[in-house]
Design a protein around this nucleic acid. Structure first.
Lengths: 200, 200
DNA sequence: CAGGATGCCAAGCAAGCGCTTGGTTGATTT
DNA sequence: AAATCAACCAAGCGCTTGCTTGGCATCCTG
């Protein structure tokens, strides 16, 4: 048994799968998405995790901090994932496709709950929390902007980049409200349709 | 003094401008949009109107009923306004433009508060309330669908109508989060940009 | 001018909220 | 074996919430 094994062994505790914080964050994302942050109670969240409400505050200082943690985690992952995808492809069309693909993956994939919370519980976040995440948000959208600036230079698109980028982003984000992953059209088809909006 | 004058005179009461229900609904739309429905309290709303919290319940049975009233009013007006606009123009391009124009007008015009509440406090509405408004919603989107079906037949658009319609609707609705009416670009420019998404 | 609505205030209730406190348990470290 | 620690429970505090009650003044109607 190596030192690393020891560390791993002491990391996975007790009966429940995964560390407590992980279980809380996952349950919080699901609950906040379903009920909305303000309507969700710490007792509901604790129930979902399988502990008493007071025990939540052993892991987080406040209910607000849980919301912040959910959002911070997903926004970091989203930005990192996008950066990786953009680095892996060349050409404006492929890069725009990467923007769409990344957003669709987070919106409908395994991180869908946290992504939905990030997107439309933003106002529920404290002003300090918003300020703390604003830089990440800015960086994420700057990646979008760079792609569209280049696409414009190449004559691939003709609308003003700032506007086009926001329209496309809105169209993709909004799929959360109507797209059915179980339905006929796959995510690939959705990606193609979204791409066709900006390419002539 | 005619009978109509009498009726009008008895409709506008007291010192405050407009009947009480009107003032409550307007204040509610503004408050619910700014704070979110769940975080808004009946005391805050009463303050904004200029009465005590208990007096609200003389006009509405519950806080939920106020939310419902705000949403019902704006969804009815939105659908009626769209129907009127569609009847006034001919040709698929002009009709798609009418869809966009109508949505933009409600999203950024005088009814912006109520429209925003309708759009993203839908989950805060009671299941019964949702059911009661669903028929209106369905009718509204059916108008969109008809326009895009015809546009497809004419070969004006090439993406599947259902998907294209949802993507465009999302793009336009999402402008609420980034478009600045005080900024450089006017609503007309936004309308043109949105139209260019669907027309090749 | 009687009489009933109507619109509002003053006061407060019951329930539910986020969060705190003090203590127990069981595993890990020394 | 003793000390330490994280994770949790049991209980409940103080506050805010949506809503109710009872009464007072103003208005419209017959």
């Amino acid at each position: 048994m190596t030192v690393q094994d020891k560390t791993l062994a002491s990391q996975e505790r007790r009966k429940a799968p995964g560390p407590a914080k992980r279980r809380i964050l996952d349950a919080a994302a699901r609950l906040f998405r379903a009920r909305g942050f303000a309507r969700s109670t710490v007792r509901e969240l604790a129930d979902a995790v399988g502990i008493l409400s007071g025990s939540l505050f052993h892991h987080f200082k406040s209910k607000d901090e849980i919301l912040f943690a959910v959002m911070e985690e997903v926004i970091i992952d989203m930005d990192a994932s996008l950066a990786e995808r953009l680095q892996a492809v060349e050409g404006s069309e492929a890069r725009i496709r990467a923007l769409i693909h990344n957003q669709l993956e987070f919106t409908h994939g395994p991180r869908a709950d946290a992504t939905a919370v990030l997107v439309h519980e933003w106002n529920a976040l404290s002003p300090e929390g918003q300020a703390a995440l604003l830089e990440r948000r800015r960086r994420y959208f700057e990646r979008w902007h760079e792609v569209f600036l280049q696409a414009r230079e190449e004559g691939l698109v003709h609308v003003e980049p700032t506007v086009l980028q926001q329209l496309l982003h809105g169209a993709v984000v909004w799929t959360a409200y109507w797209y059915d992953p179980e339905g006929q059209m796959g995510l690939q088809g959705l990606e193609d349709a979204a791409l066709s909006l900006v390419l002539k």
